[in-house]
Nucleic acid binder design. Structure first.
Length: 260
DNA sequence: CTCAGTGTTCAGTG
DNA sequence: TCACTGAACACTGA
Protein backbone atom coordinates (compact mmCIF):
# COMPACT_ATOMS: atom_id res chain seq x y z
CA UNK A 1 0.00 0.00 0.00
CA UNK A 2 2.37 2.68 -1.09
CA UNK A 3 1.36 5.87 0.61
CA UNK A 4 3.77 8.24 2.34
CA UNK A 5 4.89 5.89 5.16
CA UNK A 6 5.64 2.98 2.83
CA UNK A 7 7.54 5.18 0.40
CA UNK A 8 9.51 6.77 3.25
CA UNK A 9 10.37 3.30 4.53
CA UNK A 10 11.66 2.29 1.11
CA UNK A 11 13.62 5.52 0.79
CA UNK A 12 15.32 4.76 4.11
CA UNK A 13 16.01 1.23 2.94
CA UNK A 14 17.60 2.56 -0.23
CA UNK A 15 19.51 5.15 1.76
CA UNK A 16 21.16 2.73 4.14
CA UNK A 17 21.84 0.06 1.53
CA UNK A 18 22.78 2.01 -1.59
CA UNK A 19 24.31 5.36 -0.64
CA UNK A 20 28.07 5.34 -1.27
CA UNK A 21 27.68 2.18 -3.31
CA UNK A 22 28.43 1.98 -7.00
CA UNK A 23 25.93 0.40 -9.37
CA UNK A 24 28.06 -2.33 -10.92
CA UNK A 25 25.31 -3.64 -13.17
CA UNK A 26 21.79 -2.44 -13.88
CA UNK A 27 18.83 -4.10 -15.51
CA UNK A 28 15.70 -2.32 -16.75
CA UNK A 29 12.79 -4.37 -18.03
CA UNK A 30 11.40 -3.65 -21.50
CA UNK A 31 8.26 -2.14 -20.09
CA UNK A 32 6.64 1.23 -20.63
CA UNK A 33 6.65 1.71 -16.87
CA UNK A 34 10.15 2.95 -17.72
CA UNK A 35 9.54 5.82 -20.07
CA UNK A 36 12.26 8.22 -20.82
CA UNK A 37 14.12 9.92 -23.61
CA UNK A 38 16.13 6.74 -23.52
CA UNK A 39 15.16 3.12 -23.99
CA UNK A 40 15.20 0.88 -20.91
CA UNK A 41 18.48 -0.61 -22.11
CA UNK A 42 19.99 2.84 -22.49
CA UNK A 43 18.80 3.79 -18.99
CA UNK A 44 20.50 0.69 -17.63
CA UNK A 45 23.67 1.63 -19.47
CA UNK A 46 23.69 5.10 -17.92
CA UNK A 47 23.08 3.69 -14.45
CA UNK A 48 25.99 1.34 -14.78
CA UNK A 49 29.07 2.67 -12.97
CA UNK A 50 27.15 5.45 -11.20
CA UNK A 51 27.60 5.97 -7.51
CA UNK A 52 24.49 6.63 -5.42
CA UNK A 53 25.15 9.74 -3.36
CA UNK A 54 21.79 10.31 -1.67
CA UNK A 55 18.04 9.70 -1.59
CA UNK A 56 15.03 11.99 -1.57
CA UNK A 57 11.29 11.77 -1.20
CA UNK A 58 8.31 14.04 -1.56
CA UNK A 59 4.83 12.68 -1.04
CA UNK A 60 4.65 9.24 -2.60
CA UNK A 61 7.51 9.95 -4.99
CA UNK A 62 11.14 9.10 -4.33
CA UNK A 63 14.44 9.12 -6.14
CA UNK A 64 18.09 8.21 -5.81
CA UNK A 65 20.62 10.97 -6.36
CA UNK A 66 23.37 9.81 -8.67
CA UNK A 67 26.93 11.00 -8.89
CA UNK A 68 26.42 12.32 -12.43
CA UNK A 69 23.82 14.77 -11.11
CA UNK A 70 20.81 12.86 -12.42
CA UNK A 71 17.99 11.37 -10.35
CA UNK A 72 16.66 7.85 -10.63
CA UNK A 73 13.00 8.61 -9.99
CA UNK A 74 10.67 5.89 -8.70
CA UNK A 75 6.92 5.94 -8.35
CA UNK A 76 5.23 2.87 -6.98
CA UNK A 77 1.65 3.33 -8.12
CA UNK A 78 -0.68 0.95 -6.34
CA UNK A 79 1.37 -2.22 -6.45
CA UNK A 80 5.03 -1.26 -6.65
CA UNK A 81 7.63 -2.06 -4.00
CA UNK A 82 11.36 -1.90 -3.36
CA UNK A 83 13.35 -4.93 -2.19
CA UNK A 84 16.88 -5.29 -0.88
CA UNK A 85 18.35 -8.72 -1.54
CA UNK A 86 21.52 -10.32 -0.27
CA UNK A 87 23.47 -12.83 -2.37
CA UNK A 88 21.43 -15.96 -2.98
CA UNK A 89 18.10 -14.42 -2.03
CA UNK A 90 15.53 -15.03 -4.78
CA UNK A 91 14.00 -12.14 -6.70
CA UNK A 92 10.31 -11.36 -6.82
CA UNK A 93 8.29 -11.76 -9.99
CA UNK A 94 7.32 -8.70 -12.06
CA UNK A 95 10.77 -7.22 -11.54
CA UNK A 96 11.24 -3.96 -13.47
CA UNK A 97 14.60 -2.68 -12.24
CA UNK A 98 17.63 -4.32 -10.69
CA UNK A 99 20.66 -2.48 -9.31
CA UNK A 100 23.63 -4.67 -8.51
CA UNK A 101 25.63 -2.82 -5.89
CA UNK A 102 29.35 -2.91 -5.26
CA UNK A 103 28.92 -4.75 -1.95
CA UNK A 104 27.27 -7.68 -3.74
CA UNK A 105 23.70 -6.94 -2.67
CA UNK A 106 20.84 -5.96 -4.96
CA UNK A 107 18.20 -3.30 -4.82
CA UNK A 108 15.20 -4.21 -6.97
CA UNK A 109 11.93 -2.53 -7.91
CA UNK A 110 8.96 -4.68 -8.66
CA UNK A 111 5.49 -3.76 -9.83
CA UNK A 112 2.66 -6.23 -10.12
CA UNK A 113 0.12 -4.18 -12.05
CA UNK A 114 2.27 -1.75 -13.99
CA UNK A 115 0.79 1.48 -12.74
CA UNK A 116 3.99 3.22 -11.71
CA UNK A 117 7.01 4.99 -13.16
CA UNK A 118 10.76 4.71 -13.40
CA UNK A 119 12.59 7.62 -14.97
CA UNK A 120 16.02 9.12 -15.22
CA UNK A 121 15.63 12.86 -14.67
CA UNK A 122 18.02 15.79 -14.48
CA UNK A 123 16.17 17.21 -11.48
CA UNK A 124 13.20 15.23 -10.25
CA UNK A 125 12.00 17.98 -7.90
CA UNK A 126 11.88 20.55 -10.70
CA UNK A 127 9.53 18.76 -13.08
CA UNK A 128 6.03 17.31 -12.83
CA UNK A 129 4.69 15.42 -11.06
CA UNK A 130 6.94 16.31 -8.11
CA UNK A 131 7.01 20.03 -8.93
CA UNK A 132 3.22 20.15 -8.75
CA UNK A 133 2.98 18.66 -5.26
CA UNK A 134 1.96 20.69 -2.27
CA UNK A 135 3.77 20.36 1.07
CA UNK A 136 4.77 16.95 2.36
CA UNK A 137 3.41 16.98 5.91
CA UNK A 138 6.50 15.22 7.30
CA UNK A 139 9.24 16.56 5.07
CA UNK A 140 8.14 20.15 4.59
CA UNK A 141 6.92 23.04 6.65
CA UNK A 142 3.17 22.45 7.10
CA UNK A 143 1.77 25.34 9.12
CA UNK A 144 -1.75 25.27 10.48
CA UNK A 145 -2.49 28.79 9.26
CA UNK A 146 -1.70 27.85 5.64
CA UNK A 147 -3.88 24.78 5.90
CA UNK A 148 -6.77 26.77 7.33
CA UNK A 149 -6.52 29.21 4.42
CA UNK A 150 -6.34 26.45 1.82
CA UNK A 151 -9.26 24.46 3.14
CA UNK A 152 -11.46 27.53 3.52
CA UNK A 153 -11.33 27.90 -0.27
CA UNK A 154 -12.39 24.34 -1.03
CA UNK A 155 -15.97 23.16 -1.40
CA UNK A 156 -15.28 19.48 -2.03
CA UNK A 157 -15.75 16.88 0.72
CA UNK A 158 -12.84 16.73 3.15
CA UNK A 159 -12.16 13.15 2.07
CA UNK A 160 -11.60 14.28 -1.53
CA UNK A 161 -9.33 17.14 -0.53
CA UNK A 162 -7.26 14.89 1.74
CA UNK A 163 -6.43 12.95 -1.41
CA UNK A 164 -5.40 16.12 -3.27
CA UNK A 165 -1.61 15.94 -3.61
CA UNK A 166 -1.45 19.73 -4.02
CA UNK A 167 -2.67 20.08 -0.44
CA UNK A 168 -1.41 16.93 1.30
CA UNK A 169 1.45 15.32 -0.63
CA UNK A 170 1.64 11.66 0.32
CA UNK A 171 -1.86 11.07 1.68
CA UNK A 172 -3.68 8.15 0.07
CA UNK A 173 -6.95 6.39 0.55
CA UNK A 174 -6.42 4.59 3.84
CA UNK A 175 -4.63 7.52 5.47
CA UNK A 176 -7.40 9.91 4.44
CA UNK A 177 -9.95 7.60 6.06
CA UNK A 178 -7.81 7.13 9.16
CA UNK A 179 -7.49 10.90 9.55
CA UNK A 180 -11.26 11.42 9.38
CA UNK A 181 -11.78 8.57 11.83
CA UNK A 182 -9.27 9.76 14.41
CA UNK A 183 -10.21 13.43 14.05
CA UNK A 184 -13.91 12.56 14.36
CA UNK A 185 -14.77 14.12 11.02
CA UNK A 186 -17.56 13.13 8.70
CA UNK A 187 -15.69 12.62 5.40
CA UNK A 188 -18.64 14.17 3.51
CA UNK A 189 -18.13 17.53 5.25
CA UNK A 190 -17.31 20.28 2.78
CA UNK A 191 -13.89 21.73 3.56
CA UNK A 192 -15.17 25.29 3.77
CA UNK A 193 -17.60 24.14 6.46
CA UNK A 194 -14.88 22.85 8.79
CA UNK A 195 -14.39 24.83 11.99
CA UNK A 196 -10.90 25.97 12.87
CA UNK A 197 -10.87 23.41 15.68
CA UNK A 198 -11.71 20.69 13.20
CA UNK A 199 -8.90 21.74 10.88
CA UNK A 200 -6.52 21.69 13.85
CA UNK A 201 -7.73 18.20 14.78
CA UNK A 202 -7.36 17.05 11.19
CA UNK A 203 -3.78 18.29 11.06
CA UNK A 204 -2.90 16.80 14.46
CA UNK A 205 -4.37 13.44 13.52
CA UNK A 206 -2.62 13.41 10.18
CA UNK A 207 0.79 14.15 11.70
CA UNK A 208 0.25 11.58 14.44
CA UNK A 209 -0.74 8.88 11.96
CA UNK A 210 2.14 9.59 9.60
CA UNK A 211 4.75 9.70 12.36
CA UNK A 212 3.52 6.50 13.94
CA UNK A 213 3.32 4.65 10.62
CA UNK A 214 6.85 5.71 9.71
CA UNK A 215 8.13 4.84 13.20
CA UNK A 216 7.01 1.23 12.74
CA UNK A 217 8.47 1.07 9.20
CA UNK A 218 4.98 1.13 7.67
CA UNK A 219 4.45 -2.39 9.04
CA UNK A 220 0.67 -2.62 9.30
CA UNK A 221 0.86 -5.34 11.95
CA UNK A 222 2.49 -2.81 14.26
CA UNK A 223 -0.06 -0.05 13.72
CA UNK A 224 -2.03 0.62 16.94
CA UNK A 225 -4.85 -1.87 17.37
CA UNK A 226 -7.50 0.82 17.63
CA UNK A 227 -6.81 2.23 14.15
CA UNK A 228 -9.62 1.91 11.63
CA UNK A 229 -6.99 0.52 9.26
CA UNK A 230 -7.33 -2.96 10.73
CA UNK A 231 -11.06 -3.11 10.09
CA UNK A 232 -11.49 -1.48 6.71
CA UNK A 233 -10.03 -4.01 4.27
CA UNK A 234 -12.01 -6.53 2.37
CA UNK A 235 -15.18 -5.03 3.79
CA UNK A 236 -15.17 -7.99 6.13
CA UNK A 237 -15.39 -6.18 9.43
CA UNK A 238 -18.77 -4.71 10.26
CA UNK A 239 -17.45 -2.80 13.25
CA UNK A 240 -14.35 -1.01 14.50
CA UNK A 241 -12.38 -1.77 17.70
CA UNK A 242 -15.13 -0.19 19.80
CA UNK A 243 -17.91 -2.12 18.10
CA UNK A 244 -19.14 0.89 16.12
CA UNK A 245 -20.61 0.20 12.71
CA UNK A 246 -18.38 0.99 9.75
CA UNK A 247 -19.96 2.41 6.59
CA UNK A 248 -18.47 1.96 3.12
CA UNK A 249 -19.34 4.67 0.61
CA UNK A 250 -17.92 6.27 -2.51
CA UNK A 251 -16.56 9.71 -1.66
CA UNK A 252 -14.11 11.64 -3.82
CA UNK A 253 -14.30 8.81 -6.30
CA UNK A 254 -12.92 6.23 -3.88
CA UNK A 255 -14.22 3.73 -1.42
CA UNK A 256 -14.37 5.40 1.95
CA UNK A 257 -14.67 3.58 5.26
CA UNK A 258 -16.03 5.69 8.05
CA UNK A 259 -17.86 5.58 11.35
CA UNK A 260 -20.69 8.09 11.82
C1' DC B 1 -17.71 -14.05 -15.35
C1' DT B 2 -17.63 -9.50 -13.01
C1' DC B 3 -15.70 -6.04 -10.50
C1' DA B 4 -13.04 -3.47 -7.05
C1' DG B 5 -8.57 -1.60 -6.04
C1' DT B 6 -3.31 1.07 -2.22
C1' DG B 7 -2.40 6.04 -7.37
C1' DT B 8 -2.19 9.55 -11.02
C1' DT B 9 -3.86 12.11 -14.86
C1' DC B 10 -6.88 13.71 -18.25
C1' DA B 11 -11.39 15.16 -20.39
C1' DG B 12 -15.48 17.48 -19.59
C1' DT B 13 -18.24 20.62 -16.95
C1' DG B 14 -19.27 24.66 -14.39
C1' DT C 1 -7.31 29.22 -14.91
C1' DC C 2 -9.37 26.88 -11.36
C1' DA C 3 -12.23 23.49 -8.79
C1' DC C 4 -14.53 19.49 -9.20
C1' DT C 5 -16.18 14.84 -10.99
C1' DG C 6 -15.72 10.68 -13.18
C1' DA C 7 -13.31 7.75 -16.16
C1' DA C 8 -9.16 5.55 -17.76
C1' DC C 9 -4.97 3.15 -17.08
C1' DA C 10 -3.10 -2.61 -16.13
C1' DC C 11 -3.58 -6.45 -13.88
C1' DT C 12 -4.83 -9.64 -10.11
C1' DG C 13 -7.66 -11.86 -7.03
C1' DA C 14 -12.02 -12.22 -4.54
Amino acid sequence: MPELPEVETWRRLAHRTAVDQTIEQAFCAEDDIIYDRNSPAAVAKILQGQKVIGTSRKGKHCWLDLENGQDLYLHFGMTGSLWWLQPGEPEPSHLKLRLELSDGNRLVYRNLRRIGKIRLLDDAAAVPPVSRLGPDPLGDSFPLADLQAQLAKRKAPVKAVLLDQKVFAGVGNWIADEVCYQAHLNPHTKCDQLTSNQVRELRNSLLKILKKAVAVDADADRFPKNWLFHYRWGKKAECDAKGQKILFEQIGGRTTAWVP
